[in-house]
Design a protein around this nucleic acid. Structure first.
Lengths: 338, 338
DNA sequence: CTGAAAGCGCTTACAG
DNA sequence: CTGAAAGCGCTTACAG
């Protein structure tokens, strides 16, 4: 663990002043430093494996090229899909990330501020209200998959209502008339997704779908689907607001000796778990465009970083349908009559 | 975005020198600063919301209280279970994390070094060889779930062979004699887990298990399980080396109109996906003790941070069996005869 | 063309 | 008991 070389070390080895080193290495040696000395500096830097101390750089420039990521893990996992997309977008923009759980460890948000992160990306695993402290909104900040009720920062969120509607329309287009919905018990995401389904069904002039507030776990989906399939009015197709619910439903269908999609069609909304779309059969998915959202989020943040504050906006992103193998036309006879 | 207060601002407001501010706020004012001035400093600091600039602090102290996390995502997801455990352990020790994908973005490892992280935690989603560059091993480093072939740093890894053996013994204890194994196609983890199963079966004096190199995806598990269940010599129980394989197997069993555990018992090893143990039925799991490993890893790292380098060690952790509902005694008659 | 100085924001010896 | 100075490692005006 030997001490790393400083600009002074390079200067000494090259026989020039510290400032010369800085000028050469930052490409501002043009008419300032003689060719020979430039060479000497470069060689010395190479030989000593010199790279500038970023801490010293930051103290001077007041920029750390680091973005704080504030997560709000909620009752569920923090899927890596969204974080991964943010990481990639940030990397492309030249930033490193420091991630912190703002719900469980709020003091670390202050630690990030003390460390002078250039800005914040606030992110939640599923759409949620996330009240930002003023200390955060004082710095360039964008919110992904969450909303500050007091509009302290711009938000980029999926069109959850539209996603629910797309799921329903996808099933209606396949000929289904009796839809069921398996939804989470809480959260903005569940609410809006259900709302979208209900609206689409109503718009089609059909009777409202049966909505079961199941929960968020696989077993919740299993229990709810089972209940539905053993009820009087069995739907011919199910919308699941979360991937794990869809998996639970799939297992329940199998338990009853039935099949997807022959006996029941299934569509799931995407939580970024990379699960539902990989099942057998692959569940038809209304995808959350994580990469697109993350890319735009970082564009917006970088813009703020460059030109100081900008207007607070709320951007909504369309969720496309991805075909799987879990949707087929409904059977003609009612299931429970079979 | 107003400028944050500095020690000088506090000093001015309190009518003392900059050094006095430092002494008071760091609890070394004892016999040095008068009571009255101490009060004034504290009050001024409060009023200005002063907290020291961590960048300046770091430049001086040569410590950043930040740990670099190097991930090696392999062909699969990076489960948050292990990262979450590392984050929690690091937080408890007072460190913040900067995470970087060392495989895809090796230059960010240098960026971390430039930023003077105090040390590194290197982590992989599943056991893998991870050759560390010398620039990394020059700094305090611990490896979690991975091994540096050239022993540049201490490693903390699950006992994969033992885990495989435990899975097998768990099934043998339930009375199974004909085991099958669904394994990944590549990777140290798959290899060792399979090896553990084989050894345990041999130790019991039974014929070797059928081992299928399936892959790592749900559909891989599905296809392999299906093949096995339709073969001549159907095993009565399956060990899956990965959670997603177990899920695939479960779906395949259902496809054939069979049941777990009545027709086939299932045990899975744990990848930290929090998936297999939550299925319906819950799969019996040989757990990877992520929290324990992460806690020990940070203890070891902090120790290195305190006393400079220490001996390179390789620590192995036992994987306990967690009961689910996927194991039952074998049926008396052979499946394919039914 | 080149070097000495100032300053980013801290803390810690060191004089008074 | 208190203030001025040095120094962490950098870059950027500013004199020569």
């Amino acid at each position: 663990m030997t001490r790393r070389a400083t600009a002074q070390d390079v200067a000494d080895l090259a026989g020039v002043s510290r400032s010369a080193v800085s000028l050469v290495l930052n490409g501002r040696a043009d008419g300032n430093i003689s060719r020979a000395k430039q060479e000497a500096v470069r060689e010395a830097a190479l030989q000593l494996h010199y790279t500038p101390n970023a801490v010293a750089l930051s103290l001077r420039s007041k920029r750390t090229e680091t973005i704080g990521v504030l997560t709000w893990p909620d009752h569920r996992h923090m899927p890596l899909s969204l974080l991964g997309a943010i990481y990639e977008a940030a990397s492309s923009a030249g930033y490193l990330l420091m991630m912190v759980d703002a719900l469980q460890r709020p003091w670390q948000v202050d630690a990030l501020l003390d460390r002078r992160v250039d800005g914040f990306v606030v992110v939640a695993p599923e759409l949620v209200d996330f009240p930002l402290p003023e200390t955060v909104t004082a710095v360039p900040t964008v919110m992904v998959n969450c909303l500050d009720p007091s509009l302290g920062a711009s938000s980029l969120v999926p069109d959850e209502v539209g996603a629910g509607a797309s799921a329903a329309q996808h099933l209606l287009a396949a000929g289904h008339h009796r839809l069921g919905v398996l939804a989470g018990t809480a959260g903005l995401a569940s609410e809006r997704r259900v709302q979208g389904v209900v609206r689409a069904v109503e718009s089609a002039g059909l009777p409202p779908p049966v909505v079961l507030r199941a929960g968020h776990k696989i077993e919740d989906g299993h229990a709810a689907a089972r209940r539905l399939l053993e009820s009087e009015q069995v739907p011919s197709a199910l919308v699941c607001t979360h991937e794990r619910l869809a998996l639970g439903a799939l297992l329940a269908v199998a338990d009853l000796g039935l099949r997807v999609p022959e006996d029941l069609s299934l569509v799931s909304l995407d939580d970024g778990e990379d699960l539902a779309g990989r099942l057998v059969p692959a569940i038809d998915l209304v995808e959350r465009p994580d990469r697109v959202i993350a890319t735009h989020a970082l564009d917006l943040l970088v813009e703020q970083l460059r030109q100081g504050h900008s207007a607070v906006r709320r951007l909504t992103f369309v969720c496309p349908v991805r075909q799987g193998a879990s949707v087929a036309p409904p059977r003609l006879r009612a299931l429970h009559a079979g």
